[in-house]
Design a protein around this nucleic acid. Structure first.
Lengths: 149, 149
DNA sequence: TTAAGTGCAAACCTTTTGCTGCCCC
DNA sequence: GGGGCAGCAAAAGGTTTGCACTTAA
């Protein structure tokens, strides 16, 4: 049976919540739904602002706590780019990021050769890798970004 | 003429300072000296604590302001690992970091093949790269770090 | 002399935590 | 009904800023 991808997170979330004696609240559903609807690289504040539209009373802390929960479930991942605040994205196949410092565009990519080289490097130093970050910063081909500042 | 590497930063710093009408103060010299003596991956607090020993009255803000100055001069670089606070290292040939999440050991490495692949990827998306971050996280070969927690 | 720099404290920002009343199970 | 949760506000870090005094040039 093929799971509806838009609902897949709901099953994982519910399973995780049940197994821990936690509760599936209105807010948790709403936040998670909104998070997945928005898609990648969301700031907590982005998400909070959008949530305010449908749920005026919602608290900043609840958004933080729910995102932390999603990360624990393994259905979201936190990202730390050069800037100040943490971003979150739906968990998926591993990938890295290519970021335009002009317009903020974020492109996801994967490269198996690099991954293999990383493993090789780790082995060379006697490390066992658990995870990694790689962000490439540059200017995209948009004229506004290409021109010198 | 070969420049004494230990003094190289002093020349760059002075040049930058003169060219901008800034001033080479006792504190700036002391902070920069201490920063270079300590070497890589220093936290502002690390540096501040060490400075307190020789300069009890020094202010946190001064350390921050001086490090920012060193980054502007191009003789220091700021690093953002997974943790909370920014680290600084003396600028040098580009390298990436391999970090043990057990004991905090930080290893620097460079890999030209990866760098080339990164350029290739950027080109594929029409980007011109300016810089990048890559951090590999894992467990080093120390038994304390290898064992499961 | 005089403008930049220092030290201090207060402000800022992002994220976390304590608490009280609320609601899912 | 009871314990986990939401909302709020206050706290907690890390970093920046405003201000009056000091100091390099």
């Amino acid at each position: 049976m093929i799971t509806n991808p838009q609902e897949a997170w709901k099953q994982t979330l519910e399973k995780h919540i049940r197994s821990r004696g936690l509760r599936l609240t209105r807010q948790r559903l709403l936040i998670t739904e909104t998070f997945f609807r928005r898609g990648g690289h969301t700031t907590v504040d982005d998400l909070y602002q959008e949530l305010l539209k449908t749920q005026p009373g919602i608290g900043y802390a609840t958004v933080y706590r729910t995102l932390k929960l999603l990360v624990e479930c393994g259905i979201a991942e936190s990202l730390q780019f050069g800037e100040d605040s943490t971003r979150y994205e739906p968990a998926s196949e591993h990938h890295d990021h290519l970021i335009c410092t002009g317009c903020g565009t974020i492109i996801e990519f994967e490269n198996e050769t690099i991954e293999n080289l990383q493993e090789e490097i780790a082995k060379m130093f006697g490390f066992t890798l658990t995870h990694h970050n790689m962000e490439l910063y540059g200017r995209c081909s948009d004229p506004k970004c290409t021109k010198k500042s």
